[in-house]
Computed example of a mutant assay.
Amino acid sequence: MAAPQTPAKDTGKPGKKRSLSARGWVPDYHGAWAMVFVPITLGIIIGGFVPAHIPFYLLWGVGYFCFFALTKWFVARRKPLYATPVKAYVCACAVLGILTLWSAPKLLLWAPWFAILIITTVILIRERKERTMAARGITVTAGVLVGAVTYDLGTGFQRSSFSLLPVPVDTHMAALSGHNWSSSVTGWKWMWLVCLVLLLYFFGTVPVVKTVIRERRSTPHLVFSIVFHALAAAFALVSALLGWTGWALFAVFVALLARSAYFPLTMRYQGKKWSAKTIGITEIVFTALVVIALWLP
Rank of each mutant, 00 (worst) to 15 (best):
I98L: 14
W113R: 10
V75S: 01
E127F: 09
Q158F: 06
G154V: 05
P51S: 04
K72N: 14
R136A: 10
W102R: 04
P166Q: 14
T171A: 12
I46L: 11
P166E: 11
F49P: 14
V169Q: 10
T84S: 10
F114E: 11
T150S: 15
R128Q: 04
Y57V: 05
F68N: 04
P51D: 06
W73T: 01
F67L: 05
G63H: 06
I44V: 14
V146C: 07
K87G: 02
I138T: 07
L165V: 03
R126M: 02
L107E: 04
K87W: 15
S163D: 12
V144E: 10
F114K: 07
R78H: 14
L109W: 12
A134Q: 03
S160C: 06
T121E: 05
I45W: 15
E127Y: 08
L124Y: 04
A88L: 11
A52D: 11
P80Q: 07
I123V: 09
V50H: 08
P105S: 05
Y89M: 08
L124H: 01
T132Y: 03
V146T: 11
I125W: 03
L107G: 09
G154P: 11
R128H: 02
L124A: 02
V50E: 12
L153N: 04
T155Y: 12
V144K: 10
G147W: 03
I125Y: 02
K79V: 00
I116A: 15
F114D: 11
P51E: 07
A88W: 15
G97S: 09
I45K: 14
S103I: 06
K72F: 07
L81Q: 10
V62P: 10
G156A: 03
E130S: 06
A142S: 14
S160V: 09
I98H: 00
T141P: 06
A94N: 02
C66Y: 15
T100H: 05
F68G: 01
F49Y: 15
K129V: 00
A142K: 07
A148P: 00
F157Y: 13
L70H: 11
G137L: 04
F74T: 00
R128M: 00
I98P: 01
P80F: 06
A134M: 10
M133Q: 05
T41N: 08
W113Y: 14
V140N: 02
K79R: 13
L101R: 02
P80L: 05
P80C: 06
P85R: 12
E130M: 02
C91S: 14
L124T: 01
I118N: 02
R128T: 00
T41C: 06
A83H: 08
P166D: 09
R77D: 14
K87Q: 14
D152Q: 10
